[in-house]
Write a protein that binds this DNA or RNA. Sequence first.
DNA 1: GCCTTTCGTTTACAATTGTCAACAGAACAG
DNA 2: CTGTTCTGTTGACAATTGTAAACGAAAGGC
Lengths: 143, 143
Amino acid sequence: MDETKVAEISPAEWEVMRIVWTKNGAYSRDLIDMLQDKRQWSASTVKTLLRRLVNKGMLETTREDRRFKYNATVSESTAMNTTAEQLFDNLCAMKRGTTLLDLVANTTLSQGDIAALQAKLAEKAKSAPEHIECDCLPDDCEC
Amino acid sequence: MDETKVAEISPAEWEVMRIVWTKNGAYSRDLIDMLQDKRQWSASTVKTLLRRLVNKGMLETTREDRRFKYNATVSESTAMNTTAEQLFDNLCAMKRGTTLLDLVANTTLSQGDIAALQAKLAEKAKSAPEHIECDCLPDDCEC
DNA sequence: GCCTTTCGTTTACAATTGTCAACAGAACAG
DNA sequence: CTGTTCTGTTGACAATTGTAAACGAAAGGC
């Protein structure tokens, strides 16, 4: 849908983006009200986050009367996947599986999520390697 | 093993920690050599990262002769899990499953990883809810 | 015993992030 | 028309992060 580069989104910015995605676009008033409610942020704080997200190209604005409508430029799933993958890049290749296991164990998943994961795993099992190499050290790794 | 608080670890710091974990402790010389090799970082950069990790309580030092041996204060899996869970905290509860699916699809997993994930999923399937609520908006959510 | 190498410590500096206050222009109320 | 209210723009400031130079003490080489 959009192969646009997803900039790094800070936790505070995520909070803003989530509302924009969920409501499929929002006005600063909406965001200020909701985040004041949810996070006790001042109006200024929300405005700053909006400005930064626009600068990062994560949000785009359309003037409507006197105010702006803020819309996301990338889909929520794209952003989530990109961010999750970036985090996994930091982890040892050999141990990503156990981290996934921990996430699966600690995340509330719906029946549908579980079914989808099971299907994907069954598919991957057909060609998965027996063992994965650690990539923490420059060349050789005797871990 | 260690329920110590895991501080936020930046990507550059992760790179250092990975080596310390993999080698089960290391000297600054080892780290400088390897990271110069792997990331082209200057010796100073590595030293700064070590200092910061010690300040954050992620590494502890033991004097050996003239130099220090750096050891991790938390296990690699604890750190990885904590960080992954922190990231998931930023994501909409309703959509974490699809992010996990993306990760599973894009991560190279071993046969053992897959088997463990399948077992865990089968277990969770027994009590998983049909649907999960979005938690992006303050109270009500009509997403 | 000096000079050089090796470590760790201090200092630096720009960019990003979390949090806001202050200000300016437009719209609205009276 | 004039003061109040909205909304967006600027400026701020401390903490964190990426990157690194400079300095000081100790060890080893010759």
